[in-house]
Amino acid sequence: MSFLELTQGPLWYLASAVFVIGVLWRLIGILRLGRSTDRSVARASGLGGALKAIALHSVPHGGNLKRTLYHFLTGYGFHLGLFVLLFFAAPHVAFIKGLTGFGWTPLPRWGFLIAAEAAFAGLILMWLRRMTDPVMRRLSDADDHIATWLVFVVMLTGCLALQEAHDSLRALHLLCVEALMIYFPFSRLMHAFTFLFARAYTGATYGRRGVTP
């Protein structure tokens, strides 16, 4: 079995299984912790508050943008760039089509370049801030660094394989992706899903009070 067959076959299915089961297990586990009902008389709808919070916390609000501009620019650059790369890079679209049969129009090369630049610059700058800002340094733990570096290596190997001419480079990228997928459910990378829960719970609490947080 070649390296590519290994990473596209057994390893891929193993990683996918760990990812899907792990993420579901963790999310359901969080919900199963349960929460006592709020008996106070609501001023407004909690559900409305939850939806508003989910939307509102995606954008700067409350007049704090100037203070958090660095995080805003790098965070948006990285996350938008990564999202676009993940779902619209031509090799990814082809890969998804191969798996599921569904395909869509991939990005042109210039679009790929812009997304990749934004994602790389954002990730590197966010990590540098983590290393230099006293507040972030005090908060950070090993998980923060491991997650950052895993994502970086995944993006890096993806770019190195961009010529799509060498199976070994493609396999290397896949191997890194699989490492990331296995690490994901055990780590803070879970924020990709839990952000919805956190915002919704806060939004519901505040929403009942008639406040959009």
């Binding site: 199963r32 912790l33 349960g34 829960f197 719970y201």
Partner: peptide, 14 residues
Amino acid sequence: GSHIGSYLDACIHC
């Protein structure tokens, strides 16, 4: 509770 669990799992130390 589940709200606290969500909070603690979502904090990305930014």
